[in-house]
Design a protein around this nucleic acid. Sequence first.
DNA 1: ATCAACGCGCAACCTTTTGTTGCATGAACT
DNA 2: AGTTCATGCAACAAAAGGTTGCGCGTTGAT
Lengths: 122, 122
Amino acid sequence: MSTLVDDDLWSAVGDPTRRRMIDLLLADGDGTATSLSERLPVTRQAVAKHLAVLDRVGLVHASTAGRERRYRVDDEQLARAVRQLNAVGSAWDSRMDRIKRIAESIQRTNDENTRRTDEKNE
Amino acid sequence: MSTLVDDDLWSAVGDPTRRRMIDLLLADGDGTATSLSERLPVTRQAVAKHLAVLDRVGLVHASTAGRERRYRVDDEQLARAVRQLNAVGSAWDSRMDRIKRIAESIQRTNDENTRRTDEKNE
DNA sequence: ATCAACGCGCAACCTTTTGTTGCATGAACT
DNA sequence: AGTTCATGCAACAAAAGGTTGCGCGTTGAT
């Protein structure tokens, strides 16, 4: 089964700057393009574009307060993203486990068959 | 506390095509640029570039066999990537929990805007 | 031994994303 | 009034992801 992943959601959290923005928004409760840009190595306009991306996939939503535009994380959607991270991680983990187990069983089979192979070669 | 994440590693698995490539390599054991491109919606050259990216961060490594270049997943490094996915997921989860608990203690009527935002087709 | 088929790498080019600078607008505070 | 501050918009540059085309070495068939 393929993992049924929302690529837009993944790509949204795949960007390092956006991931840090989510960290900051979670730590502070909310934030604006300006306030976030002061704590990130990019300009306010770059942050604004990232906020637009996060908004499009529903990871944040904005509310206008006077001359400010405050953004807040959407818990529901972030929880969905976390579930997908875990799902992919689990899928990879189990596949690696399976291969590891197969490798071990081959090792055992080789050990058991060493003698027989010698006999067969004549 | 920032999450101490390897951005290169994360960005490598952040791309949808690269994620599917890892899936295929795990399922088959190994693969070439050509064999992977036959099962992906991109050309062999695009796959080759992605393999170069995955190789640079150590998620796969190649071995030349005749005219073929076979790639295989590095379990060690993929396990590291999975640990980072889980770490970020856990960090976000716990921060949301904290906020959720605070929100619950303050107000209880909170469930009217968690409806769908799935009409986003542009 | 020759030659077509196959797999690969390289280069040029295009589009989208990520980032920048500059300017105009609108709300807020003296 | 008049500035200050946050924002939005536009033009632009650089990097990422993707394409086509070509040449070169390996494989395998005749």
